[in-house]
Design a binder for these strands. Sequence first.
DNA 1: GTTCTAGAAC
DNA 2: GTTCTAGAAC
Length: 203
Amino acid sequence: MKRSFSSQGPSAKKFAPWFNALEESLKDPALRVFEDDQITIIRDKFPKARFHYLALAKSPIDDLEQLTSAHVSLLEHLIEEAHAFVESNVAAKTKNPVRLGFHQVPSMKRLHLHIISQDFDSACLKHKKHWNSFTTPFFMDAEKVLTTLKEKGKVALDKSRAEELLKDPLRCHVCKESLATIPKLKDHIKMHDKDEAVKEPKQ
DNA sequence: GTTCTAGAAC
DNA sequence: GTTCTAGAAC
Ligand SMILES: Nc1ncnc2c1ncn2[C@@H]1O[C@H](COP(=O)(O)O)[C@@H](O)[C@H]1O
Ligand SMILES: [Zn+2]
């Protein structure tokens, strides 16, 4: 028999569903590291590298496929301010290079630009999907998105093909060596880490 | 997206 | 026996 009242019960509080978490985080001053009239940059709450932030437009854009020619100058501004943020803040965190880009098939609502250093040194980076989402073409460079938008007036994606990339075997993003497991990969990439002190070779 | 954990892989 | 991955979450 169906109840006429909410199945959540009288004391259940309503929480925003998990895929709206960025919407909530945008409101949290503790996570905000930059804002102007058009954009906000926030800390990634589960950073996958020593330097990992998200840049979002204040006027909400759903995803890459909603972008039109009308967004070109906003996207240019987002990328420009992201670069400026990196320029003035990255040195305190890492010597490793930083990439700006979008996941082709994000889990979180609201278009967000990843600003992420290439050390990938983080306990939050736990599995193959994490790794491949930042190191395969699943990760679209911001400049490529901008160029495509300027040339075509839209960003067309093959989402099912993009999602296949997440299942690819693990491969070092620097030297392309393949590694069997995440722990082995994490151990391997230390050799490319610009922050890692040079270790004595094993005898 | 994360957390938790069963059972696959080693 | 331990490490590691991958799928459910009501
Ligand atoms: N509540 C949150 N606040 C800020 N960042 C988050 C939150 N939850 C998840 N994230 C990050 O948001 C990103 C979403 O990934 P994706 O949707 O694949 O682009 C990931 O890097 C998460 O670590
Ligand atoms: Zn390598």
